[in-house]
């Protein structure tokens, strides 16, 4: 099975939430899709699709969370850091990912 990873945009927010819903079974009507995804950094959001399909079977998004850490001699330093909001996948692609390791 071939899997391709493609960037997702705001136009894909409902398809992204569909994958999230398949993984975590939350109330799909709790929040509108625009509200549930408004903090997403779309430049860091991707979907994985099986060959021949359009809907993502897995999604991953992250955001910039550079942190201030202790530096030399008691100073402070900024460190580039990315927070992963999480990877969601349908069971099928999760098995594929585990087998691929």
């Amino acid at each position: 099975m071939t899997i391709s990873i493609v960037p997702l945009t705001a136009a894909d927010r409902q398809r992204l939430l569909n994958v999230d819903l398949a993984a975590f079974f939350f109330d799909p009507n709790a929040y509108p899709a625009e509200v549930a995804t408004r903090h997403f950094d779309w430049a860091s959001t991707f979907g994985a699709s099986r060959e021949g399909t359009e809907d993502p079977a897995g999604v991953c998004t992250s955001y910039d969370m550079a942190v201030t850490a202790t530096g030399p001699l008691g100073s402070l330093a900024r460190c580039p850091w990315q927070g992963c909001r999480g990877c969601r996948s349908t069971p099928t692609i999760a098995v594929a990912a585990c087998c691929a390791r």
């Binding site: 460190c79 580039p80 850091w81 990315q82 927070g83 992963c84 990877c87």
Partner: peptide, 14 residues
């Protein structure tokens, strides 16, 4: 995800 972060210069993922 890691490859993207590496290209962006991120040191850590949390």
């Amino acid at each position: 995800h890691f490859a993207q972060l590496h290209e962006q210069g991120a040191a850590l993922s949390g």
